[in-house]
Amino acid sequence: MIRYLRLYAHFMRFSISKALEFRLDFFFRIFMDLVYYGIQIGFYQAIFMQTPLLGGWSRDQSLVFMGGYLVVDAISMTLFSNNMWMLPVAINRGDLDYYLVRPVSSLFFLSLRDFAANSLINLGFAVGILAWTVLRLPEPPHAVSLLLFLAMLPFGAVLHYQMHLVSLLPVFWMGSGSNLHGIFYSFARCMERPDRIFTGWIRRLLVSVLPFCLMASFPARVFLEGPHWPILLHFAAVITAFFLFIIFIWNRGLRAYSSASS
């Protein structure tokens, strides 16, 4: 474990020094995420000009949910996203060879080696927006609910990473993975809406097999409606199940991997 932590510290150091070599791009990326945050706030303001409630939540409650998914997105962008972009390329071109021969978990290396320093700054902005939305609530938050909410958000980001990885793993068997990102990001929009607007089998799908609605909605529900054990257990069970599923598929994928031009 200590070895992995030390390795991750090296990843962070290299990534930050690399990011600061391309300063204009570094600031462009920060600004890009700020535009995204502005668009999300603008969207919810426009929606609540039409309705008093969305999925059972008021404007203030929905803004807390929005702040939550901005934090989930920022954590995911900081830790995982750059690595996920490169994963299909590494598999397709045979670059995976270089990771397989190293004496550490190849999945750990490929998932975390690039730390997005610019997104760390955006994480600060996202946390600021979340704090602003929490302070807007008419009643002061319950301390336990708030702590659980804050503890669940990083796990929401882990689930986001897991779903991204699952969407990319077919590249082991397909010729190209360039379009797989597009599919993931299209589905990831479900994360940006309260889970209770979805109904029927689509809702069941979005809280189980494609758990985009768990990432931010469930933490927000714990915060806004109080701790509820079935929600917490459901959340933990899905993350664990996806972890095991990924390990299984990764190992199957490595068996199918035939180095360059696989």
């Binding site: 929606i47 039409q50 969305l54 999925g55 809406r193 209770r196 607007i197 979805f198 109904t199």
Partner: peptide, 8 residues
């Protein structure tokens, strides 16, 4: 979009 507008 379907579920969002349905909820609204």
């Amino acid at each position: 979009a379907f579920f969002l507008w349905k909820a609204v």
